[in-house]
Simulated scan of single mutants.
Amino acid sequence: MELQVALDVVDLPSALTLANQVAEFVDILELGTPLVKSVGIGAVSAVKAAHPDKLVFVDLKTADAGELEAGLAFEAGADLVTVMGAADDDTVRGAVAAGRKYGKSVVADMITVTEGRVARIREVAKLGVSFVEIHAGLDEQARPGYTIATLLEDGRQAGVPFSIAGGVKIDTIGSVREAGAKVAVAGGAIYNATDPAAAAKELKKHATA
């Protein structure tokens, strides 16, 4: 299982600093949506230039104009781009078309999809995305009773390639791996750590155990 770090900061120097700290221990560097909105698409080029050997994942959360938006990110150096799993099928198809044009990958982000999530995961998987990210956002995670177990069970049931984002940390990453995820996405467990590099190293050890 690969480890992805979410660079959930809002300025480029902080993103580059965090990327430099953890790149040795992660497979994928993710530019969070707030970073792209704050800095612009140029942040993609900057991170890719600093770490050309890493996959750069751009969390656009595209909800419309899929081919246009994905194309902008791929032009800037992205390796993977997200489109909303809740978006219109043609939006997903458009992003996938851009991915094919550039030889890159599109990921369907299932954030906001709670009812009928397994069925929708299977639907979008058929539209040509590389994999599906089963994702609970920060607001959902803050609600009483939230558990990552729901995401893991949906991944098991869906039967398609998936990643997990939403509460991945040292005491849950083993369960993520055992559920069959191809990627574990860690955010706060790394960037909120006293030593982000050490946190990333420990998570990577459990991701590949």
Rank of each mutant, 00 (worst) to 15 (best):
E24T: 13
G103K: 05
K126M: 05
G99L: 09
K169V: 06
G187A: 13
A97L: 12
T112Q: 00
A181S: 03
D53C: 00
T62S: 10
S105R: 15
L72F: 14
E67Y: 05
K169Y: 06
G103S: 06
D53H: 15
A19E: 01
F131T: 04
G116H: 07
T17A: 15
G99V: 10
F57R: 08
I164T: 06
V176W: 05
D171C: 03
L31H: 04
A193V: 05
A199I: 09
F57W: 11
A209C: 04
E153D: 07
Q4F: 13
V106W: 03
R122T: 09
P34M: 13
G128I: 00
A6P: 01
Y191R: 14
D195E: 10
V83A: 10
K104T: 01
L60K: 04
Y191H: 14
R177M: 06
G40L: 14
V124F: 06
V26L: 13
T150L: 04
E115G: 07
F57E: 04
E153Q: 10
E2S: 11
L203H: 04
A209V: 13
T91K: 00
I148H: 02
D154Y: 01
V36L: 15
L68N: 02
L60V: 09
V36A: 12
D11Y: 01
F131K: 02
D139W: 02
G159R: 10
G42T: 12
A23D: 14
A50N: 13
G94R: 02
A184Q: 08
K37E: 15
T33C: 09
A19H: 03
G116V: 11
A199W: 10
E67F: 07
E75I: 12
T147V: 07
H135Q: 06
E2H: 15
Q157W: 04
Q157S: 05
S175N: 08
